[in-house]
């Protein structure tokens, strides 16, 4: 039971962590909470759905499950990433010098717009999510794990490892860190700050899109308003880990997922209270360590 709930928590946490990265990366660069990120996540789920419909009709992909999944994720993540850049260009960039409340309102506007778009053009009801690959169950003495859980955990961790590598070792990754620490000085180094900001939205939205598909696969259905709760939980995860901190967002995502699973599994009637517990943890952490678990209060030099 313990291991079974831990597995559920890690699966859920993987999805939260992927979404949380988008919040934390954008915050790290613009000091702004991208409240439209939950809708980016939702859009990713829908893009995945569209590409599934499209690819199912292409004969090349018949019987080639690996390519099918690979291109499904690649195209959906790319589309979501482009949406992320588009939102930044249209809704945030013109407001970069405006008071901080303005982009926040703009973000809420974008959220409403995207939700309504999918509601009007796709459906105002839940849409059944296709099962992309056959669900196999594996029984071990301590827990039962299915192929979908393995896939979610494996893909999320791989994406996060790639991101870590990118941020830590590549030239663009270093430039991203430099911009998040001191935008003006970064531009003196010859870094095109606007391009780095776009890149951040691109990556954050792409990861959010992947999370959207995984979420759709896990729960079996998607809906135009599905972004809200996971979005706010992932935001919680980002704050929990220390907003602006990439490792913190991953860590926070897993902590939150595991806590939720344990509350649902071990506390009688806990399933209905799991969200309450999740936010209670957030409030506790913020009271005890306002900068988040991995947050630093290092002053800029």
């Amino acid at each position: 039971m313990f291991f079974q709930q831990l597995l559920n928590g890690v699966t859920l946490g993987s999805i939260y962590a992927l979404i949380a990265l988008g919040y934390t990366m954008v915050y790290g660069i613009l000091l702004m909470i991208n409240f439209a990120h939950s809708e980016i996540f939702m859009s990713g789920a829908f893009f995945g759905y569209f590409f599934y419909q499209l690819f199912s009709r292409i004969s090349f992909f018949q019987e080639k499950i690996f390519f099918f999944i690979f291109f499904l994720f690649l195209c959906s993540m790319f589309s979501t990433a482009l949406l992320g850049i588009f939102i930044e260009q249209v809704a945030y960039k013109p407001l970069r010098r405006a008071p901080r409340l303005a982009p926040l309102i703009s973000a809420i506007g974008v959220s409403i717009f995207i939700q309504n778009f999918f509601m009007l053009f796709v459906s105002n009801q839940s849409v059944a999510y296709p099962q992309i690959f056959p669900l196999k169950k594996y029984n071990f003495s301590l827990l039962e794990i299915n192929s979908l859980q393995i896939f979610i955990i494996f893909l999320s961790i791989s994406l996060m490892l790639v991101l870590r590598f990118f941020i830590q070792y590549t030239k663009l990754g270093k430039a991203t860190r430099a911009v998040s620490q001191d935008r003006e000085t970064a531009s003196l180094m010859g870094i095109n700050v606007n391009r780095i900001i776009s890149l951040t939205f691109f990556i954050g939205a792409g990861l959010g899109g992947a999370a959207g598909i995984l979420n759709g696969m896990y729960y079996g259905s998607i809906k135009y308003n599905m972004g809200f709760l996971p979005g706010i939980k992932a935001f919680t995860a980002a704050v929990l880990g220390g907003i602006g901190n990439i490792s913190g967002a991953m860590f926070g995502g897993y902590i939150l997922g595991i806590c939720e699973a344990f509350t649902a599994g071990f506390i009688p009637g806990g399933a209905e209270w799991k969200d309450v517990f999740a936010f209670a943890i957030l409030i506790l952490v913020l009271l005890l360590k306002p900068s988040g678990l991995l947050g630093t209060q290092l002053k800029k030099v």
Partner: peptide, 24 residues
């Protein structure tokens, strides 16, 4: 331009700071 107050990137290592200088 070497800015006033040095403006070192505090969370990059010394080597990374130098590498960023050669970004172009």
């Amino acid at each position: 331009q070497v800015p006033e107050g040095r403006k070192i990137f505090p969370l990059l290592t010394v080597k990374e700071n130098l590498e960023i200088g050669a970004y172009r």
